[in-house]
Simulated assay, not measured.
Amino acid sequence: MAPSRTDFPPIRACLFDMDGLLIDSEDKYTLCTNAILARYNRPPLPWSIKAQMQGRPGSSAGAIFHQWAQLPISREQYLVEQAEIQRELFPSTKPLPGVEKLLADLQAARTPAGAKVHVALATSSHEANFKLKTTHLESLFAVFEPHRRVLGDDARIAHGRGKPAPDIYLLALQTINASLAEGEKEITPEECLVFEDSVPGVEAGRRAGMRVIWVPHPELLVEYTGREKEVLAGRTGEGGQVDLHQLGEIDDGWAERLPTLERFPYEKYGMVV
């Protein structure tokens, strides 16, 4: 067990996942999946499987799902049926509790020295699905400038390097640093705060050398009861035996779990609103 660090610099960048963190799309994914499972007389998707799929790129999540589901249709046919239901459900996504206030507050947030706090989006959602889920929430997502949105099909992320690999969060930071105002000092990973709901996403943030806020779905938390500290350290083994030196330690102070994004403790992270 590592001693808990307390001498962190103020947060200068907040990097956000999207599905299940900013909007209720994770629940809609479950509805889509269960509708198809019922169509073929298969049981509903259990959280033990969904927990493994969450946060991952579509191809990785799909492999986990199909190995469990054993559907009598091809993956291609499944995707066709899934897309049909998603087109119905995704345009009705809603912000989760606390999201609207948090994003609004961050627009005015500063460090104690007066430096601006920047935001970026880092989601495994591909562009077409991103548009389905967010077009009706344009004012909410306007806080993420287009050049600071990193999506799952971004060509700059190498194949196989989606979450829990750190690449998407490192790229999100890169988009911020590439567009800082003249005279602004480059932001380092430890000055970044990653917001995640998924276990692979938490690990991605930790592997990127960033601090992390974990806001899990209540059902996901049930699946990880007793292992919460492992999740916060990024040590659940989601990313395999790669780059282990970048992982955190139990109780090292780099990550914490919150029940929702309501009443966010800005002062704790060196932000003044």
Results as ranks from 00 to 15, higher is better:
Leu45Asn: 00
Glu81Thr: 04
Pro44Leu: 10
Asp24Glu: 04
Thr33Gln: 15
Ser25Asn: 05
Ser25Arg: 03
Pro44Ala: 08
Pro57His: 14
Trp68Tyr: 15
Pro57Trp: 14
Lys28Ser: 01
Ala38Cys: 04
His66Gly: 05
Gln54Ser: 13
Gln67Gly: 13
Leu31Trp: 07
Gly20Gln: 05
Leu37Lys: 10
Asn41Ile: 00
Gln54Lys: 09
Tyr78Ser: 11
Pro46Tyr: 07
Ala61Met: 10
Arg39Val: 02
Pro43Leu: 10
Tyr78Val: 06
Thr33Val: 15
Tyr78His: 15
Met18Val: 02
Glu26Leu: 06
Leu22His: 08
Gly20Asn: 02
Ala38Asp: 14
Arg75Lys: 13
Tyr78Gln: 13
Tyr40Ser: 13
Gly62Asp: 06
His66Lys: 05
Ala83Thr: 11
Asn34Thr: 11
Ser48Pro: 00
Ile23Phe: 07
Trp47Gln: 08
Gln54Val: 09
Ile36Ala: 12
Ile64Gln: 00
Ala51Val: 02
Ile64Met: 06
Asn34Arg: 13
Asn34Leu: 12
Trp68Asn: 01
Phe16Arg: 03
Lys50Asp: 00
Ser59Cys: 05
Asp27His: 12
Ala63Met: 13
Arg56Cys: 03
Ala51Ile: 06
Leu71Trp: 10
Ser25Thr: 15
Leu37Asn: 10
Ala51Tyr: 01
Glu81Cys: 05
Leu45Ala: 00
Pro57Ser: 14
Pro46Ile: 07
Lys50Glu: 00
Leu22Trp: 09
Ser48Ala: 14
Lys28Trp: 08
Gln70Phe: 01
Leu79Ile: 02
Glu76Leu: 05
Pro43Trp: 06
Leu22Pro: 01
Phe16Ala: 05
Gln52Cys: 11
Asp24Asn: 13
Ala69Tyr: 07
Glu76Thr: 09
Pro57Leu: 15
Ser59Trp: 06
Asp17Leu: 04
Arg75Pro: 12
Asp24Ser: 02
Gln82Asp: 08
Gly20His: 06
Ala83Phe: 09
Arg42Asn: 08
Phe65His: 07
Ser48Val: 11
Ile36Cys: 11
Asp19Tyr: 03
Glu26Tyr: 07
Gly20Tyr: 04
Gln67Ser: 14
Pro43Cys: 04
Trp47Ala: 01
Tyr40Met: 14
Thr33Arg: 12
Gly55Thr: 06
Ser25Gly: 04
Gln67Trp: 05
Ala63Asp: 15
Ala83Arg: 14
Trp47Val: 01
Ser60Cys: 07
Arg39Asp: 13
Pro46Arg: 10
Pro46Met: 10
Leu22Arg: 08
Ser59Asp: 12
Lys28Asp: 02
Ser59Ile: 12
Leu37Asp: 09
Met18Cys: 13
Thr33His: 14
Pro44His: 11
Tyr78Lys: 09
Ala38Met: 10
Ala63Tyr: 10
Ile49Cys: 03
Ser48Arg: 12
Ala35His: 05
Tyr78Ile: 10
Asn34Val: 09
Leu21Glu: 03
Pro44Glu: 12
Phe16Val: 04
Asp24Thr: 04
Asp17Cys: 04
Arg56Glu: 08
Lys28Gln: 09
Asp17Val: 03
Leu37Gly: 06
Gln54Met: 15
Tyr78Trp: 15
Leu22Asn: 07
Glu26Thr: 08
Cys32Lys: 02
Leu71Tyr: 11
Ser74Asn: 07
Gly62Cys: 09
Gln70Leu: 07
